[in-house]
Simulated scan of single mutants.
Amino acid sequence: MRIGELAALLGVSTRTVRHYHHQGVLPEPPRLANGYREYGMRDAVALARVRRLAGLGLSLDEIRDVMADERSRELPEILAEIDADLAAQERDIRLRRARLAEVLRRVEDGTLSPDDTASPGLLSFLKAIDVPASPSAAWDRDLLMLVDSASRAPGGRWTFAALDALTADPEPAARGRDFYRRLDELAGAEPGDPRVEPLAEELAAFSLEHMLGDQVPDGWRAEVVEPFLDGLAPAQAEVVRRAIRLIGARLPR
């Protein structure tokens, strides 16, 4: 397969694959006589492994070391591990679908109002920091609405800790707009851009101070939001991953 087919198979961009090649975490196959590079099953498995390690919080340097150690592993062992990961994702998807089915039922029987899938505090917060012209703000609004709706279902209750106070304070709202502006500026950047780490640090600190308190949403880990990062550029997605990992590491459980 060609690089575009490999990228599509794993749900990433060709730019991300080339970045992994450049950083030495993903071996690059030699060019054939026709000038193209051909990727095979082992390349797909290696790329899946890199993505999983990145989602677990490893740096590219750490991933490079792990991948070097694991090149001697047998393919069936690696595939079995990936299959176990997919099984866990499948369970998460079934749970989400069950929650969405309940929302759909309420829509069909007329018991669901337009804003009933979000808590009042979240709606006030989104209104206070609304930045219609920002692609990052639009993406974040959609994700927050989904997380809030799902977490308020039975067995997964979670609410933002201090949204009412936050919306009454213009300073945090202004900082929120600044975060969106800085995320938008990373639209054409790579994950290794020097602006990524400080922005992730500030976002994590802001969330801990103003939004989360000491509450940890169920299943709080970077892999959970991975399916929702496709609409972001690589550097923007990396900011979100790092911020979530930082929050998870600092909150009590």
Score class of each variant (00 low, 15 high):
117 T>E: 11
72 S>K: 13
25 V>C: 02
103 V>A: 12
110 G>L: 14
97 R>P: 05
93 I>G: 11
9 L>V: 09
108 E>K: 15
71 R>K: 14
63 I>N: 01
20 Y>G: 01
9 L>I: 12
74 E>P: 08
34 N>E: 01
70 E>C: 09
74 E>T: 13
60 L>E: 02
68 A>R: 13
101 A>S: 08
84 A>Y: 05
39 Y>D: 00
83 D>T: 11
92 D>R: 15
77 E>N: 10
19 H>L: 09
16 T>Y: 01
25 V>E: 00
23 Q>H: 14
32 L>Y: 08
32 L>A: 09
24 G>R: 01
64 R>S: 03
44 A>R: 00
17 V>S: 00
14 T>I: 08
81 E>G: 10
97 R>C: 10
115 D>H: 13
110 G>R: 05
30 P>H: 06
60 L>N: 04
27 P>L: 04
24 G>E: 01
70 E>P: 06
52 R>Q: 14
117 T>D: 07
31 R>V: 03
74 E>I: 06
55 G>Q: 01
60 L>F: 12
54 A>L: 15
8 A>K: 12
114 P>G: 05
91 R>F: 09
14 T>M: 04
91 R>D: 14
9 L>P: 11
80 A>R: 12
89 Q>F: 10
46 A>P: 03
104 L>G: 08
43 D>V: 02
21 H>E: 06
27 P>E: 02
48 A>N: 04
96 R>Q: 14
46 A>S: 15
36 Y>P: 03
45 V>W: 02
101 A>Y: 07
41 M>C: 09
107 V>K: 14
70 E>L: 09
26 L>W: 00
86 L>C: 07
39 Y>P: 01
59 S>W: 05
66 V>L: 07
6 L>C: 04
76 P>F: 04
33 A>D: 08
68 A>P: 10
99 R>V: 08
6 L>M: 02
102 E>I: 10
19 H>Q: 07
102 E>T: 13
35 G>P: 02
34 N>M: 02
49 R>A: 08
57 G>T: 01
101 A>T: 07
27 P>S: 01
77 E>L: 13
61 D>G: 10
43 D>E: 04
107 V>P: 03
28 E>I: 05
11 G>Q: 05
104 L>S: 13
86 L>Y: 11
122 L>K: 00
121 G>P: 02
42 R>P: 06
76 P>L: 03
35 G>L: 00
115 D>E: 15
29 P>N: 05
5 E>D: 15
57 G>Q: 04
16 T>F: 02
